[in-house]
Every structure is written in structure tokens, then in C-alpha cells.
């Protein structure tokens, strides 16, 4: 569950990041077209919002929100550090992390 929250937060930040000219150029080359920019931004915010849900499910409202803010920090920080050192990995982790998180949270314990 926590891994899913982290994955969604990471993917959300990646979306917001790609919606910016400089980072789009760094990671994907070129500037994003207007439609694509809005799509990235919308999906980014949506994923960030969604990442709250696993936290609430796991920890309840009080600690859930606290943990969510912490996960957002760690996710954003991972992304910020990956961009200069391993841009391709930063990109690939976008879809991989939420999927891995989903698999982990669905896996029978």
C-alpha cells in the first residue's frame, strides 16, 4: 500500500515535471505542445491526489495525511536527484513504480 502511494506520488511529480519546458527538453527532448503540456499537468495532479488514498487506507486520516506529506517529499526528492544523474531511469520509473506498488499491494501476504 505504501509502495503504491509512493509510486503514484513519483509518477505524479514526473508528470508535473515533464510539463515544464526545461525538464521536458532534458528528459524527452523539445518543448511540449500546449495540449500535451496540459495533459501532463492534469495527469500529474490527478496522480498526486490519488497517492493520498493508499495512505488514508493504510494509516487512517490523521497519520495518513502526515505520512502522505512525507511520501511526497521523498518521491519529489528521488525524482530531483535522478534527473541529473540518471534521466532515463527517472523516466522509466514513472510507469514502473506505480505498477510495482500495485502488484505489491495486491499480492497475497
Amino acid at each position: 500500500m505504501a509502495a503504491l502511494g509512493f509510486g503514484l506520488a513519483y509518477a505524479g511529480f514526473l508528470g508535473l515535471c515533464l510539463a515544464m519546458d526545461r525538464h521536458h527538453a532534458e528528459l524527452l527532448r523539445g518543448r511540449p505542445a500546449a495540449g500535451r503540456r496540459w495533459l501532463l499537468r492534469g495527469v500529474g495532479w490527478l496522480l498526486l491526489g490519488l497517492s493520498l488514498l493508499p495512505c488514508l487506507a493504510l494509516w487512517g486520516v490523521g497519520i495518513g495525511i502526515v505520512a502522505w506529506l512525507g511520501l511526497l517529499t521523498v518521491a519529489a526528492y528521488s525524482l530531483v536527484h535522478l534527473i541529473p544523474y540518471a534521466p532515463r531511469l527517472a523516466l522509466w520509473l514513472g510507469p514502473l513504480l506505480p505498477l510495482a506498488g500495485l502488484a505489491l499491494s495486491l499480492a497475497p501476504t
Binding site: 515535471c17 515544464m20 541529473p84
Partner: peptide, 8 residues
């Protein structure tokens, strides 16, 4: 604008 910026 600088949210994701880190230039080591």
C-alpha cells in the same frame, strides 16, 4: 519553476 531543479 525551480521545483525540480538540481544541477550538481
Amino acid at each position: 519553476a525551480d521545483f525540480f531543479t538540481f544541477r550538481p
